[in-house]
Amino acid sequence: MEYLLPTLREKREVDSLIRDTLDKVLVLRFGRPSDAVCLQLDDILYKSARDVSRFATVALVDVDSEDIQVYVKYFDITFIPSTVFFFNAHHMKMDSGSADHTKWVGTFMRKQDFIDVVEAIYRGAMKGKLIVSCPLPPERIPKFQLLYKDV
C-alpha cells in the first residue's frame, strides 16, 4: 500500500503534515503493512482517498518505525490499525460508542463508512466541535476491548 498512499516513518514528517494540513481533515492510519486487517483498511482508505480529497488528506504511519514510537505512546495506540483524525492541528474525537473516543480502532466495513466518518468530522470541525458522534450504526463499528492502562 505504500506506493499508493504516503507513508510516514519519521516524527518530523508526521509533525509537518499535522501542522501544514489546513482546513482539511487529516486522517492518520497507524499500522503495519504486514497486518491483514491493516491491509483491508488501507485498501478502503486508498479507494476513498480521492473521493474525500477535497476535505481530507490521508496518510499512513508505520508503527514499527523507531522515530514514531513517541506518537505511538502519546496516542495510546495499543491496537493496529488505529486511525487518528486531526483538523488544523487539533485533535478530533469521535464518540462511536466504544471505549476509545480518541481514535478509530479497527477497519471500516466499506468505503462509504469511511467517507461518512470523515465527512461527519469535517462538518463538526467546521462548526467548531472538537468531538462528534459517529454517523454509523453500531453494528458496523468494530468492537474491541480496552484494558485500563498499567493493569
Binding site: 497486518d35 523507531e66 505512546k73 493496529i80
Partner: peptide
C-alpha cells in the same frame, strides 16, 4: 475478515475482527 495474527498471543474474543495488539514497550532509540 481475514484472520488477524495476534502479536502477543492474546485473543480479544469479542466477536469482532481480531485486532493485532502492539505492545507499547519502550523501544528507546
Amino acid at each position: 475478515y481475514p484472520g488477524a495474527r495476534i502479536a502477543n498471543g492474546e485473543d480479544i474474543s469479542l466477536g469482532f475482527p481480531k485486532l493485532t495488539q502492539i505492545s507499547s514497550t519502550s523501544q528507546e532509540a
